[in-house]
Amino acid sequence: MTGRAERIGLLALPGLSFLAVIYALPLFMLLLKSVQIDGQFSFAEYVAFFSDSYNLSVLWRTLRVALLTTGLALIIAYPTAIIMARAKGFWLSVFLVAMVLPMSVGVVVKAFAWTILFRTRGVLNDTLMSLGITDAPIRMLFTETALIIGAANVFLPFMVLPIYAVLRQMDSRLPEAAASLGATPVFRFMNVTFPLSLPGVVAGCAFTFSLAISMYVIPSLIVGERQQTLSMLTARSFLYLRNEALGATISSILLLIAISVVLTSSWAANRLGARQ
């Protein structure tokens, strides 16, 4: 049988070689290109990138927006996942539709909808003014706050679902057992529910952060060219400026951030898994 089990491995070849040639190799060549100038090995492009204060402000803005987006999504997602994991029947269907339908509708559609909402004479300002919260319309489109709200909206299902999946699998008798032993609600949450949900939290945060760090459509529609992010700068250097060296460097930086998020989160997930 060993012979056949080994031959079965060959079935992976078409898919693997496809991804090796049309995905891994191009990414590797991109990385290589960013450390080469005229065939010579050099970090000059990176030095140039990091010594430009404009680039640093873009990098900082990208990281800040991604962190705040992840944080906002987590604050909304965690209680939602707890309620979802307890829900049955009608309410469970409501929550599932609210997760899956927005996930199935494209980013372009949702980002566009937020530009309608955030318009100075848009729905949000009209509501705020009719409620008497503000007298004059507030400028919302083209602000970082609007970007974070829009991005959190788009990525929210990717935060809720991993936490929901973990909580759903959790034995609901565990907190009850803790309660019957006299544990207070706070103690129970901190020592039973929360630690058990951590793998889901890590997975959700990693996914949301890596999506937020590289989002392109959402910031180009909501904040526009004035406040660049790393991916907008990449697109601009390739599509408009024709500065491919700069583009290759920025995309390599984005790639390295993405890879380190993946490695860190899988390391954290393994640690959490080993502890339990």
Partner: peptide
């Protein structure tokens, strides 16, 4: 892990890499 990894990679970077390749 490798076959699922494109989900976590920045789409724009994959696009740039493919363009050059």
């Amino acid at each position: 892990t490798f076959t699922v990894s494109p989900l976590m990679m920045p789409g724009l970077v994959v696009g740039v890499a493919l363009l050059q390749f």
